[in-house]
Amino acid sequence: MRLLILFLLSLFAAKSWGQGTSGKWYKGNMHTHSYWSDGDDFPEMIMEWYKSNGYDFIALSDHNTLAAGEKWKQIPSHPFRQRRFKAYLEKYGDDWVTYKTDSAGQISVKLKTFAEYKPLFHEDGRFLIMQAEEISDAYEGKPIHMGAINVEELVEPQGGNSVTEVMQNNLDEVYAQRERTGKPMFPHINHPNFRYAIKLEDMIPLKGERFFEVYNGHPEVHNYGDSTAMGMEELWDKLLIHYIKAGKPLLYGLATDDAHHHGEFRVGLSNPGRGWIMVRAKELTPAALIAAMEKGDFYATTGVELREVAFERKKLRIEVKPEAGVSYTIQFWGADKKADGIEQGGELLKEVKGTAGEYKLRKKDLFVRAKVISSKLKENPYKAGDLETAWIQPVTLQ
Rank of each mutant, 00 (worst) to 15 (best):
G345E: 02
D336F: 04
V320T: 04
G325K: 07
K353F: 13
D336Y: 06
S327V: 10
A324M: 07
V320D: 01
G325H: 05
V304N: 02
E343M: 13
T329C: 07
F311P: 00
E347C: 08
E347I: 13
Q344D: 06
G334P: 04
K321F: 10
E343G: 08
E323N: 08
L348P: 09
E343N: 10
S327G: 12
V304L: 00
K314L: 08
L316A: 10
E323F: 09
Q331E: 14
K315W: 07
D336V: 01
L349W: 09
D336W: 02
I318M: 06
A324W: 08
W333S: 06
W333L: 11
R317K: 12
K321D: 13
F332E: 09
Q331F: 10
I342D: 14
L348N: 13
R317Q: 10
V309L: 12
G346Y: 02
R313M: 11
L316E: 05
V320I: 10
W333I: 11
F332C: 09
G345H: 05
V352I: 15
K321P: 04
A324Q: 12
G345F: 09
L348M: 14
R313S: 15
G341M: 03
F311W: 01
Y328F: 05
T329E: 14
G354P: 03
K338D: 04
A324C: 03
Q331T: 07
E347Y: 11
G334Q: 06
G346H: 03
K314W: 12
R313N: 15
G325S: 05
V320K: 11
K337V: 06
V304T: 00
R317W: 06
E351C: 14
E351S: 15
G354F: 11
K353Q: 14
